[in-house]
Design a protein around this nucleic acid. Sequence first.
DNA 1: CAAACATATAAACACGTATTCATATGTTTG
DNA 2: CAAACATATGAATACGTGTTTATATGTTTG
Lengths: 112, 112
Amino acid sequence: MKDKRLPLNTLSSEEAITQLSDLFRLMGDTSRLRIILACLHDPVSVSGIAEKLKLSQSLVSHHLRLLRAARVVRSERRGKQVFYVAADEHIQCVIEDMLVHIEEPDYSKEEG
Amino acid sequence: MKDKRLPLNTLSSEEAITQLSDLFRLMGDTSRLRIILACLHDPVSVSGIAEKLKLSQSLVSHHLRLLRAARVVRSERRGKQVFYVAADEHIQCVIEDMLVHIEEPDYSKEEG
DNA sequence: CAAACATATAAACACGTATTCATATGTTTG
DNA sequence: CAAACATATGAATACGTGTTTATATGTTTG
């Protein structure tokens, strides 16, 4: 239990931090986060996402390109349409953990 | 196992998304992420963080204010100094999950 | 209270980027 | 091949924000 530190040594710390912040920054935009959530469990087409979220097709496509480049989502073509889905379950874990943090009560007045 | 969806219903989805993206955006800046990592396990003073990361005291203080406002870190005064530490273990979980995602191999060419 | 130290705040600038509009690429169908 | 549909890309703009510089607030000590 003593060595339950972050595995920041696996990659060079410098590069890991860059990759981490890149991913967090991507998820830090409301439109992109909504896009991720829209295709978190099941593949959705670009137009499907745009329609559901009431965002322009162009904007959704721009964002999906960034998300795909960072391997947050994967794409799969089906006929004319391209479907996107979250790349793996870790994306979901990250969001879930953060939601738990949000729901956590505020202990700031208490002692350690 | 069927209802293992995200607990996005607990808060209003709209507000949850705003809070989520706010938190991710905060962690999406390299300096801030490094600051979080610097005080993830143990409390560190502002000057301690600044020195360790070679950032100006002012910059560190600015960032810590944002992080504290979002309850990513907590502060505790000890004499002249103010020590900061990650607010709870969920912050660590989020980062760990994201690191696992980074280390994940690329399955983009394979089938589901 | 004054001086020294530690942190916080304010204003200003520089820079990245989210969004829109227009257009190009790609895919199916007649 | 042309037309219709779906997605991707490029350029331009508007806006937020990370950083710096300077100064203020707060705390201990003599």
